Each structure stands twice: as C-alpha cells, then as structure tokens.
Amino acid sequence: MSALVFSLPAMFVAGWQQGPASAPVTLCLHGWLDNADSFLPLSAFLSELNLVSIDLPGHGKSQHRSLDAHYHFLDWIYDVATLIKTQGWQQVDIIGHSMGGMIGSVLAAVMPQMVRKLVLIDSIGLVTGEASNTTQQVRTAINHRWQSPQKQKPVYTDLQSAAVARQNQSDFDINCALVLAKRGTEACTGGLTWSADMRLRESSAYRLMQSQAKELLKDIQCPVLAVLAKDGLQMMQQARQEYQHCYPKLELVELQGGHHCHMMQPKITADAIRQFLLS
C-alpha cells in the first residue's frame, strides 16, 4: 500500500493506493465522519483492482476547509471531480459507502464521462429536504455555525479509548473501530482527539428537494450496483422504496450485516463488487 497526497486548488487530500497501479482507478469514497481506512478490510479481497481510497476534505488526514468555508454536500462533488480531472484519470469506477455513495451518484449524473461503473454500499438515493422546512433549516444552520467555535473535541488517553467511543456510536466491532480511530485521530494535549473538522457536524444550510434528487438519479447513465445491508440504516431501506426506480441501470444486492457491511463482511461484499465491476 502506498500513501498518497493530492493537491487540489484550495487544499490537499490524503489517501492511499493498493493494487496494480497501471490498471484503471477504482476510487473509494467513505461515509460521513469515517475515513479512507474504512475500505482497508475490503481491499484485502480486491487485490486485482487499482484501489485509490481518499479522506474527503475535513476527514482523516485531509486538510480542513478554510475558516470562511463550510461543508456543503455539493462542494464534495466538485472536490472529487477536480481530483479526477487533475490526476488525468479517464473513466473511473467508484465504490461509495453511505455519504460517499451519494457523492458518487451525483458525480455520475453531472459528469458521466468520468464514471464507468458505480457501487453503492448501504447507500441509495440522496438526503433531501422539504420546502416547508426551508426557514428552519437555514435558522438551524446559522445557529450551528455560531456554536461551532465554542465546541471542544473529546480527548482520549489512548487509541483504545478512542476506538471504544467510536464503536459505541456505530454497528461494528472493536477491530473495525480501531481501524478508523488509527487514521482518524491526532495527538493533542492530554492524549488523542479526532482529526475530523468539527464543522462537519453543522447542519446544512440547504438541501436538495426530492424532485431535484430524482432528476439527478435519472441522469446517471452508467451501471449501478447497490449493496444494501439487511440490518443497515433504516433511512436507506426507506430510500430504497423511494428511489430505486430512478436509476436507469440498477442492480441491487442485499447482504447480511449492518451499515458498515464492507468492514464487517468484507469478503462477501467484495465478491459482489468483483462480479459487478469485472463483468
């Protein structure tokens, strides 16, 4: 495995590469508050692929956005598109977990020349808002922005303590929590704290409307595989009913496990991905 750092116009993005570097890129995009190493368990069973896994801005070892910026969902589409363009990659395959799958979905819709095939791991559709909630959405976002500078990150005495705290907020075992905590923490006074930008927890000032989300999904031209976890997030099961008919070329597989099935069930997840990407 090789560590990577990519320079974008306003920041750097960290990640790693594994597999035959001469092969077309399979770009891995993690979920909210995770990092590139969430794909480490999966990578052990996909050695034939040229996997490039990145920390999205504000996550893991990647740079945070400037102090006058925030984390709008659509800006991540720009970040990934710019990465692909500046690296001179042709059509990439994308494996996206949760929020990473949503980023991949919108990228495939708006930049179809960049994406050959798209894999969604416990991710389908997009997070949307209701027009009737617009005023409250903006009000909440402003209040969160005012509060962020006063918030303090938790401090842990060691990596094990940080991993236990992470495990308590998710659906995986301590080994998976350690994988994420190792890349997702940094030294601070008193021990370790999370490296992720606190502003990631702020409420978005705006969301796409459901009609906009459906139009985007209908414009995805590439084949899509959705690997949904039987015990995954309830919101993904609800989104399946709402959005699965929007994808022109959707193949759907349901696997045992929770939201992080690619970490807890890496081999069976990898088998489904391999069959889809290499067929």
Rank of each mutant, 00 (worst) to 15 (best):
S2N: 09
L4M: 12
V5N: 02
V5I: 08
F6Y: 14
A10M: 14
A10H: 12
Q18P: 04
G19T: 03
P20F: 04
S22T: 15
V25Q: 08
H30D: 06
H30C: 10
W32S: 01
L33P: 11
A36P: 11
P41G: 04
L42G: 01
S43E: 03
L46F: 09
L46G: 03
E48C: 10
L51Q: 00
S53K: 01
I54T: 01
P57F: 10
H59W: 02
H59D: 01
K61D: 00
S62T: 07
D68K: 15
A69Q: 15
Y71T: 05
Y71Q: 03
W76P: 12
Y78R: 13
V80D: 02
T82Q: 10
T82I: 00
L83R: 11
I84W: 03
K85D: 03
K85E: 05
W89T: 01
W89K: 05
Q90F: 03
D93K: 15
I94N: 01
I94H: 02
S98D: 07
M99D: 03
G104T: 15
V106A: 04
Q113C: 01
D122W: 15
S123K: 15
I124N: 10
G125C: 12
V127R: 13
T128A: 01
E130D: 04
S132G: 06
S132Y: 07
S132C: 12
V138R: 14
A141H: 14
A141K: 13
N143T: 02
P149W: 03
K151I: 09
P154N: 08
Q160C: 06
A162N: 06
V164M: 03
A165W: 07
R166S: 00
R166L: 13
Q167E: 04
N168I: 06
N168R: 15
S170I: 07
S170R: 15
S170M: 15
D171G: 13
D173M: 09
D173W: 09
D173T: 14
N175D: 06
L178A: 05
G184C: 14
G184Y: 14
C188P: 15
W194A: 00
R201A: 06
S204I: 14
Y206E: 04
L208S: 00
M209Y: 02
Q210P: 14
Q210R: 15
K214C: 12
K214N: 05
L216E: 02
L217P: 09
K218Q: 10
K218N: 03
Q221W: 12
Q221V: 11
V224R: 02
K230D: 01
K230E: 02
M236K: 11
Q237F: 06
Q244V: 04
L250I: 13
L250V: 10
L250S: 07
E251G: 05
L252G: 06
E254A: 04
E254T: 12
Q256E: 09
G258V: 13
C261P: 06
I268M: 06
D271S: 09
A272P: 13
F276P: 10
F276H: 07
